[in-house]
Structures are given as structure tokens and as C-alpha cells.
Design a binder for these strands. Structure first.
Lengths: 232, 232
DNA sequence: CAACGACTGTTACGCTCGTTACAATTGATG
DNA sequence: CATCAATTGTAACGAGCGTAACAGTCGTTG
């Protein structure tokens, strides 16, 4: 689960959506100038309010991202998987972090300081464009999240979050039935539902044959039908 | 309502949150290189999917911003007031527009083409930093929107949207009781509620003396108490 | 001033979700 | 293998929102 071999690291950088369109040397440069660090379960990759510069690229493992809500509440925004970048909003604006990311698996991060980014950009100016691409995609997904949450009913929201979790996986879905490793409680939290209600809807979906429920994981059996639920 | 005098235009650029920290010459440059255009009620300032570059600064009037949601629905994201920038996500990434903005008042926009931006930046490189500031603030408010929608109950959501609408007004709230010009129906839509439910909660708030309801407008009487509702 | 449209207030009913509580199952730890 | 924590399934009750329909009020337009 914590693949650290150099070839696996390179593969993550090659397959990351925001780097895929650029020559592999860009990823190589990032790897050369950055620093690989391990984080255990429960540790932060970054904390909301932290104002150090630089970027962090997730190489292996998985994180949950949270955002502060009024009344000392925290809201889980989504899953952060290998290939994702943390800190880009700060990098561009100098403001404090917007989200807190907590490791839920042993995680490997590629830390890039401001100086390291400048060194890479000196040889490969397209770096900024690549990071801008990621920022744009991220903004799009946040906007999508907000729109779905307002427009969709609870059941549709749940399905939408499930599909979003599936999409965010860096691995290309070779298997016809991708397995999402997430508890029903967490999925419900992301949709603003209690575990009970989440369970209720998921059971109904399982009875319809659209998904299969396991212990701490969900298998998507009919992705097209799930998509129709939130589109209809 | 459609103040076009040069001094009013300059004042908007001076007071815009993302420009306030920079010398007034930056705003002057933008004004000199950009083009002022009028838009009537119902016209677009920009449309989702539009992929022309450049930026638009709102000088006078008001717009509603919408975002596409699954199932051919559109969700109103918020009010766009003088001082706001449209098109920044596209400017940085080259992707298509993320939101559609429609004028709900006669509106004056300052259109800045890619070439105009480059000309301004040649003399005032801090332009990019200023726009990055705006992008960051915008991302923050969208994230806030999503978090509130998930974490808060319907009534609290409604209050949150009301306060957000009040904050987004460029005018400094000199009056102790700022007046928000928005229909209950629209406010309800932004909170994902029907007009009936929005009315119900607003009436209760009015009976408690926290707000005063008018025809197409809402007056905030006790902002601190409203804030406590969503924080408690 | 008169008529029209837009906005606001109110009613009753049904459905869905949250709360609380308990039981069964899986996986990990020693 | 035994034990414990985490996760999942289920029940009954109450509260809140959505739907649908209608009446009253404000502002504007001719």
C-alpha cells in the first residue's frame, strides 16, 4: 500500500492529471528538487491556517480533506489521492491554507519549497501552467461540490459523493467494478447525512444491484445507472 | 443607480478588496487600458463554457452568478457586486468559464483583454498578485459555501446566505442596519429551500426583531445575533 | 388612475430525515 | 484463539421540509 520504489513514484507523477500533458522531465525535475517525507495515519499533510509557502504532492497513501464551518464544526470535503497537490491556493496568493488534510493511510509526500519550485521553473517554466491547471480543476470540483449540495436531495447527494470519490482515484479504473474504500459513516458525513440515513440509501442501492456493500468499502457495479440517478 | 461618472468609477477600483492594498495607479492603469461597456438587465457578463481570455471588472450594478448542476439544473451561487472580477479562473488556466453571470440591474463593466492586461502588467507587475488575491478570496468563499451547505441546517443556511450577501456589498456599511435588495424567493433558492420555507424562517427572524422584511428587500437589524445563529 | 405583474403571507397534508437505542458482523490485536 | 474496537443493520417516534393552492400587498406601466 505504501509503494515507495522510485519507479512507482515516477509513475504517479507521470499519471497525475495536471502533469500528464507535459513532458516527463517536468516530473523528474520536481522529484529531484523536492523532498520525500513519510507521514503516519492521523498526521497532517497541512493544516488550515498554516501559512508556509511551497507545495506538497501526494505520492502514495490517502488523505481526507476538511474545511472549517461555522460553529467550530469541520466538514469533510473529499478524498485526496496520489497525484493531488496541496497548498496551491496559498502558493498563488500568499494567504493561509484553506483546508486541512489528514492522512488516513501511511502516506508519502513530495515536499516542494518555494526555492525548489523556483529552481524547477527556471528550467521548465511550464510548471506554473501545470499548477494553474490543477488549481482550475480544483476550483471546478469545489464549485461542483457546492452546486450539487444545494441542488440535489440527500439521496442524490450521497450518490454524487460516491461517484466523486471514485473519480478522484488516481488509478485508471481497469476493473469494471471499482472498489471505494470508505466507511458509510464518512460518506454520509460528506453528504451531510447521518450514518443511519446513508446506510438506508446505500442498502436500497445495493438491493437494486447498483452497488455492493462490504466492510468499510463499496463496489460500484453499475456506474451508468448511478450517474442517471443524479442527472435525472 | 448606474453611476458612471469617472470619479465613481475610480472610487470602485480604489475600494475593491483585492486592489485596496495596492497604489491607486494600478486602478488608473486598468481604467486606461480597459473598455467600459454597459449591459442591460438580463444580459450576460460572461457565460459558462465561454473560453475567451481576459477579465471583467464590475464597476456598477449587480449580477447573479450561476453554476451548472447535474440534471440540467442551475444553482445560484451568489451576488456579484461592484469591485468583483469575473474570468480569473480562466485567465490563470485557459479552461472554459466556470460560472454564468447575469445582470439584474443596468450594469457597467470594465472589460480587459489579454493584451490590455499585459500592457498594465508591464508597468505594474503587482497586477498578477492582486488578481491572485481575488482568486484566493473567491476560492475561500466558494469553499465556505460548500461547507456551510453541508454542515448547517436549512434555517442556519438561510441566515448564512443572508450575511454573505450583506458582506459582498462593496459599499462600506455606514448605516447600522444594512438593506439587502433580494427577494425571499432568490434567497431561498441560494439556500436550497423553497420560497415557502424561506418565508417561514424569515418571518420568524422578523418576529424576533433580528431583521425587518420589506418588499424585495431585507434589513439586518441585529447582525451579531444573526451571526450567533449560524455559529451556535 | 387603473390594471397588471411581482412579491409576500398562510393553510393542510404527506414524506423524509434525525434522534435514540440496540444487535450483529467484521477485522485487528494480543 | 480470545477479546475488543470499528463497522454495519434495524426499530419506533417526532420534527421539519416540500408540494399545492390561494389571498393579500407593493410597484410599475400604460
Amino acid at each position: 500500500m505504501t509503494g515507495t520504489t522510485p519507479s512507482q513514484t515516477r509513475e504517479v507523477l507521470r499519471q497525475a492529471p495536471w502533469l500528464r500533458a507535459y513532458p516527463p522531465e517536468l516530473g523528474e525535475r520536481l522529484l529531484a528538487e523536492g523532498r520525500l517525507v513519510r507521514r503516519a495515519i492521523g498526521e497532517w499533510a497541512q493544516a488550515e491556517g498554516d501559512d508556509r509557502g511551497g507545495l506538497v504532492v501526494v505520492i502514495a497513501g490517502q488523505l481526507h480533506s476538511y474545511c472549517a464551518a461555522p460553529g467550530d464544526r469541520t466538514v469533510m470535503i473529499g478524498l485526496v489521492s496520489p497525484g493531488a497537490v496541496l497548498g496551491h491556493a496559498t502558493r498563488f496568493s500568499g494567504g493561509p491554507r484553506l483546508v486541512t488534510a489528514v492522512c488516513v493511510e501511511p502516506t508519502i509526500l513530495l515536499e516542494l519549497t518555494e526555492a525548489a519550485l523556483d529552481r524547477v521553473a527556471a528550467h521548465r517554466p511550464e510548471l506554473w501552467r501545470a499548477i494553474a491547471d490543477f488549481t482550475y480543476a480544483n476550483m471546478r470540483s469545489v464549485l461542483q461540490l457546492a452546486a450539487e449540495t444545494v441542488a440535489l436531495g440527500p439521496r442524490e447527494r450521497l450518490v454524487a459523493r460516491l461517484l466523486a470519490a471514485a473519480e478522484r482515484r488516481a488509478e485508471p479504473d481497469t476493473a469494471e467494478a471499482p472498489v471505494i474504500r470508505i466507511s458509510q459513516e464518512l460518506l454520509g458525513e460528506m453528504a451531510g447525512l447521518t450514518r443511519k440515513t446513508a446506510n438506508h440509501h446505500l442498502s436500497a442501492l445495493a438491493r437494486s444491484g447498483l452497488i455492493a456493500l462490504g466492510y468499510g468499502c463499496i463496489r460500484l457495479l453499475d456506474r451508468a445507472a448511478l450517474q442517471r440517478i443524479i442527472s435525472g
